[in-house]
Design a binder for these strands. Structure first.
Length: 270
DNA sequence: ACTGGCACCTGGGCGC
DNA sequence: TGCGCCCAGGTGCCAG
């Protein structure tokens, strides 16, 4: 479910309940996530204080003196704060319980998420080769333009490639291309610098707006504070097949690109 | 070096 | 109600 805004919303929601809290114990009910949950999680985390909860790409990083727990929400994962005695549901795979009597509960029906342990997060193989954060100063349209020269992939797949830039998933890829007036199938290497500048700005704008709205709730996403995200109301094209374009009123089109549903306006996007 | 396609897993919504 | 089918917010890995 989560793209960058949903992960960031989750991070902000849980941080006040987790930072500076000491882990009492960890309950792992099912290790069979995308990768098996390592013993380190139950062995090394208890007794540690969470110094900070940070985010890199779509990973939540729980920093302690002994190492860092890396949590990825996959397609269907979510986290929330509970009282430690709250009964666990079928897909509540992990609880990180604090001395405070609260716990961080990780739920993930599809099990595409992961919970890993590392001592050097930024050297971890899953993080090492990631592209820049879209909201950082090192990312902008001229970077996108430079990286895209000679590339034949569609611009949509290009911006969803985490080696190029992290955090842009299937919803926001369609949204930022609409805002930029760029057809999702256009080859990345054949977009002018001027248009790439617009795209770079759109990525920053849309992601920021979505974070402010608390993310997008399509099904059951909720931030760590239990509130759903309200960005769905601001989606211009995603999941709006056949509905009128917010600008020109032409029906929104849908196609499949790289096995993912893709939405755009035939009129507004070239 | 790129590109496209598959895989992992479970549940929800739809049509019959 | 039940069944079968299609779809779902991610991403590592494989072959060409």
């Amino acid at each position: 479910m989560p793209e960058l805004p949903e992960v960031e919303t989750s991070r902000r929601g849980i941080a006040p309940w987790v930072e500076q809290q000491r882990v009492n114990n960890v309950i792992v009910r099912d290790r069979r996530l995308r990768w098996p949950v390592p013993d380190d999680i139950d062995n090394k985390l208890p007794g540690q204080e969470i110094r900070s909860v940070k985010r890199r790409a779509k990973y939540l990083l729980f920093d302690t003196a002994a190492g860092t727990a890396m949590l990825h929400l996959g397609m269907s994962g979510s986290v929330r704060i509970i009282d430690i005695d709250e009964p666990a549901g079928k897909h509540d795979h992990v609880d990180i319980c604090f001395d405070s009597g609260k716990a961080l509960r990780f739920r993930d029906p599809r099990k595409f998420g992961s919970l890993l342990w590392t001592e050097k997060p930024f050297e971890h193989e899953l993080l090492r080769n990631l592209g820049p954060e879209p909201l950082s100063d090192e990312f902008d349209g001229s970077y996108l333009w430079q990286m895209s020269r000679g590339r034949k992939v569609s611009i949509k797949q290009f911006i969803m490639n985490a080696v190029i830039v992290v955090g842009v998933g299937n919803i926001y890829a369609s949204e930022v291309l609409f805002r930029s007036g760029i057809h999702p199938k256009r080859k990345a290497g054949r977009i002018s610098k001027e248009r790439m500048m617009v795209l770079g700005n759109s990525i920053k704008f849309v992601l920021k707006q979505a974070i402010e709205a608390g993310g997008t709730t399509l099904r059951d996403f909720h931030g760590g504070d239990g509130e759903p995200g309200y960005f769905k109301q601001q989606l211009d094209v995603y999941d709006r097949d056949g509905l009128p374009c917010s600008v020109c009123k032409a029906p929104i089109s849908s196609i499949v690109l790289g096995q993912r549903s893709t939405y755009y306006c035939k009129n507004c996007q070239r």
